[in-house]
């Protein structure tokens, strides 16, 4: 890989997020479009407390530090593409 990843995706691995759909997100790497393949790093992180609320935010993901709630693989990709398309540098 020539470039360092521009986008950091952090997937909450707390049990609540994990059983409420978070487990699926760990297959994200396989679903990334070619345009994003080398630009994204993916890691699991411990629970950051979003499941405490009654609002059903799980599963939660951070993209470059910004929260994405009720995450799905497609939602993450859409957000990454938006970031990437707006990035003109």
């Amino acid at each position: 890989m020539l470039t360092t990843p521009k986008y950091k995706v952090q997937i909450c691995c707390g049990t609540m997020c994990y059983i409420m759909g978070g487990a699926e997100l760990h297959l994200l790497i396989e679903a990334l479009p070619a345009q994003l393949k080398d630009k994204v790093s993916i890691e699991g992180i411990p629970c950051f407390g979003k499941c405490d609320t009654n609002e059903k935010l799980h599963p939660c993901v951070l993209i470059n530090g910004a929260e994405l709630n009720n995450a799905s693989t497609q939602k993450i990709i859409k957000q990454l593409l938006t970031l990437d398309n707006n990035d003109l540098l």
Binding site: C13, G14, T15, M16, Y18, I19, M20, P46, C51
Partner: peptide, 17 residues
């Protein structure tokens, strides 16, 4: 497994810690 996961989540047992 599902029920075990629900137990962990409801009792706030964070496996990684």
């Amino acid at each position: 497994t599902e029920e075990l996961g629900a137990l962990f989540a409801a009792l706030k047992i964070d496996l990684e810690t």
